[in-house]
Design a protein around this nucleic acid. Structure first.
Length: 432
DNA sequence: TCTGGGGTCCTAGGACCC
DNA sequence: TCTGGGGTCCTAGGACCC
């Protein structure tokens, strides 16, 4: 059976989420900023049109924001995460052959639909998907349909640019594919970033079409096996399959930039405590336990002198117990902290993850001497805390070392966060 | 003054073993 | 003590993604 993929991608996702609950934003330039109100990470079409580029720091576009009355939002991950789930649930009604690729994109396997159908079946189906998502969530999406994921990415890109209201585009006939590849710049091909684009251009390869014609041996030398896969995919031979059930993550990271520089141990410790607890929650949520943890703290990377300090702890037994992890986090932090250094960012990384159950208790496990709790009791405690925090809101229960004062120096800054419309009863929008 | 966060895969090279 | 080749495992770094 011939393969056929659809890539469904939400348009300007974070901005669209804000617009759903704030209709006055329609037609206006709107941007959403990264953590700490740092960089523009989502832009409405109007914001793109006045020259706001992806990833630009907010302070560098202050003049554009003022001149064009741009609506600016801090990022609101509770809202975007919830809207993402709604979109994905709707897509799942169309097929169970779905791969949730990111917060705002999913691949659908439509090969069953493709074989022996009327010529327009696929386009109609794409329209139906786009219309349903828009109607039920208010989020506009584009749909690209093609025989490989790489071509579906390209089809999606072209669908977004098309002026028509229904943004669905299929690339199936080889002549259509040729014409499309000719228009796509090499750096816009999925898997070709800045470095490879520059290198390929030096060899005169500047469009997706010319990339599709290169010799496989040659591209293997330049880009390794992934280069070969990209070339084949551009020719219509699928190398990347639908990943229906994603494997558990191989590592878990929690890190943040602080709103100001910190040199006080207690502030840094409060931050690391919060990140460690959050990381442990993530481990438990995916049923993993860590063999190793790494704590890092860094100075401001935009200053002339940059320091990046790390310390690692190998855990005696794989664990996802917050109290135990906090114990090692503290040890690590004491290794890297030095008075007088101005830290701007810190984080925790859990690696060498294993499946959490059954808990393997090593023959020489001395954990019970250091930590009076039995593994079973701690597991029940962690479960209770996770349940309470899930039902009553994040940080209903937290660790005292993370600090009890609401507004701390290490917290991220978000001056213009919209309400949590869909996940907090107190923030429900009012009809007036 | 002000510059995000969290992932993946691949490859080359060194250590080690037989 | 000298000599050779080949396999595996691990790690760091580089590239990419959203």
């Amino acid at each position: 059976m011939e393969s056929m993929f659809a890539l469904v991608d939400c348009n300007n996702f974070y901005v669209s989420c804000e617009r759903v609950f704030n209709p006055k934003l329609a037609g206006r330039p709107v941007i959403v900023l990264s953590n700490n109100d740092g960089c523009a990470v989502a832009r409405s079409e109007e914001a793109k049109a006045i020259g706001i580029k992806m990833g630009t720091p907010a302070f560098k576009i202050r003049h554009l924001i003022n001149a064009h009355r741009v609506a600016v939002f801090s990022s609101n991950y509770a809202l975007y995460g919830d809207m993402s789930q709604r979109v994905m649930r709707i897509l799942s009604r169309f097929t169970d052959q779905i791969e949730i690729y990111s917060v705002d994109e999913a691949f659908l396997d439509l090969s069953g639909l493709h074989s022996g159908q009327q010529p327009d079946t696929l386009t109609d189906y794409g329209q139906q998907i786009a219309t349903t998502v828009q109607k039920w969530t208010g989020i506009p999406v584009s749909v690209g349909i093609a025989p490989t994921k790489t071509l579906a990415k390209i089809a999606n890109r072209m669908a977004k640019k098309s002026a028509s209201k229904n943004r669905v585009l299929k690339l199936i006939d080889s002549l259509d594919i040729q014409k499309a590849l000719e228009k796509i710049k090499i750096e816009d091909v999925w898997g070709i970033g800045r470095q490879y684009a520059a290198r390929l251009k030096r060899y005169g390869i500047s469009t997706a079409l010319s990339l599709s014609h290169v010799d496989e041996w040659w591209i293997q030398k330049i880009m390794g096996i992934n280069g070969v896969r990209i070339v084949k995919e551009l020719r219509g031979m699928p190398c990347y399959l639908l990943e229906n059930q994603p494997p558990p993550r191989k590592g878990v990271t929690v890190s943040r930039t602080f709103r100001t520089e910190l040199d006080c141990f207690d502030d840094l410790k409060a931050a690391i405590t919060a990140y460690t607890s959050r990381g442990a929650e993530k481990l438990r949520a995916q049923g993993s336990a860590a063999n190793m943890m790494l704590i890092f703290a860094a100075t401001n990377r935009f200053k002339s002198h940059y320091d990046f300090h790390t310390a690692t702890a190998h855990l005696p037994v794989p664990t996802n117990d917050t109290l135990e992890l906090l114990h090692y986090a503290d040890q690590c932090l004491r290794q890297i902290y030095k008075p007088g250094i101005l830290f701007k960012k810190a984080g925790v990384i859990f690696k060498d993850l294993v499946c959490e159950s059954p808990i393997q208790t090593g023959l020489f496990d001395t954990r019970n001497r250091k930590r009076p709790q039995s593994p079973m009791r701690s597991r029940n405690l962690m479960q209770s805390i996770d349940t309470i925090n899930a039902e009553m809101g994040k940080n209903t229960i937290k660790y005292a070392a993370a600090g009890l004062v609401p507004d701390q120096k290490w917290h991220t800054l978000s001056r213009q966060r919209s309400p949590a419309y869909t996940t907090n009863w107190n923030h429900l929008p009012m009809a007036s």
